[in-house]
């Protein structure tokens, strides 16, 4: 095993401290008994209990969940089918390059550009149908748009790594296309699909910018709620809520790690 210079270790530990200091302080002040200011007045769980009775927060949590589940379901199905279409057919080099660029755009551009484009597009679509008023429906569309790309990229890399030999063997044994898809490709792909779906779910929970631009007054999610509350002034209740969100994130990440690292 290689040893690191003590100075490097010290720098690394300080950097880790720098990463965790903000999160830890939120957690610490979420159990602090003072309502105003940041003086330590003893341990309490009151702020957590109050959360459950705050109907705005409950509604925001519900919206967040609906948004994440709905967009993840659609994006996983579309993204998976798209990945199979991209990888398993003899597209010309030109088509492939084009598809590749379209797929990478939501991944590489700053999300605020996608958000701006969606605002304008929804604004014009509103002339056609009132469905496109700012709100949960628009947010779901926005989330699906960037999730599809991530799911398709994850599933495609899995498709490449499982190869085509088994599918070819099945074909040689006179299996039909739907049969191959159902009994061979999809079961082999499953870990990739689940990983893609979990990534999409986490991205949706994590997103602020797309939601912020497409949300309406009735469709506040937790990140939007926290943002609005913070601009009015932070309260211990917000710390408690944030701590819970971080804990959920940690659980999701550990689940994702367990699943992908086998």
């Amino acid at each position: 095993m290689r040893r690191t210079h003590p100075l490097i270790s010290a720098a690394a530990l300080l950097t880790m401290g720098f990463l965790y200091l903000p999160l830890l302080s939120v957690a610490v002040f979420s159990v602090n008994a003072t309502r105003y200011g940041l003086v330590w007045r003893g341990f309490t769980l009151d702020w957590y209990i109050q959360l459950v009775h705050n109907e705005f927060i409950l509604e925001a949590a519900w919206n967040t969940l609906v948004l994440a589940v709905a967009s993840t379901l659609v994006a996983t199905v579309f993204g998976t089918v798209l990945a199979i279409g991209l990888d398993r057919f003899p597209w010309s080099k030109r088509t492939n390059t084009f598809l590749d660029i379209v797929l990478h755009v939501p991944v590489v551009i700053p999300d605020i550009i996608l958000a701006a484009a969606l605002v304008v597009a929804f604004g014009l679509l509103r002339a056609l149908s009132s469905v496109f008023e700012p709100g949960l429906f628009n947010m779901i569309i926005g989330h699906i748009t960037f999730q599809i790309a991530f799911v398709a990229l994850v599933v495609r890399s899995r498709l490449v790594s499982i190869g085509r030999e088994i599918e070819e063997a099945a074909r040689d044994l006179f299996a039909s296309t739907p049969y191959i898809l159902r009994r061979i490709t999809l079961p082999l792909l499953l870990p990739g699909i689940v990983a893609g779906a979990m990534l999409a779910f986490t991205l949706s929970l994590d997103d602020f910018v797309i939601s912020f631009f497409t949300a309406g007054p009735e469709s506040v999610t937790l990140p939007l709620f926290i943002f609005a509350a913070v601009r009015r002034g932070v309260t211990p209740q917000i710390h408690a809520l944030s701590t819970l969100v971080v804990l959920i994130t940690v659980i999701l990440i550990i689940g994702m790690e367990r699943f992908t690292r086998k």
């Binding site: 903000p22 002040f29 602020f208 926290i226 913070v230 969100v245 550990i254």
Partner: peptide, 29 residues
Amino acid sequence: YLWLTLVIIPFWTNMVIRTYAWFLILAPE
């Protein structure tokens, strides 16, 4: 892997929370 996961957690934590958390550290008290 534990250390690596420790780096991944902030990576996936909501940016609004990670940003406003600095309010606490930089508070006058």
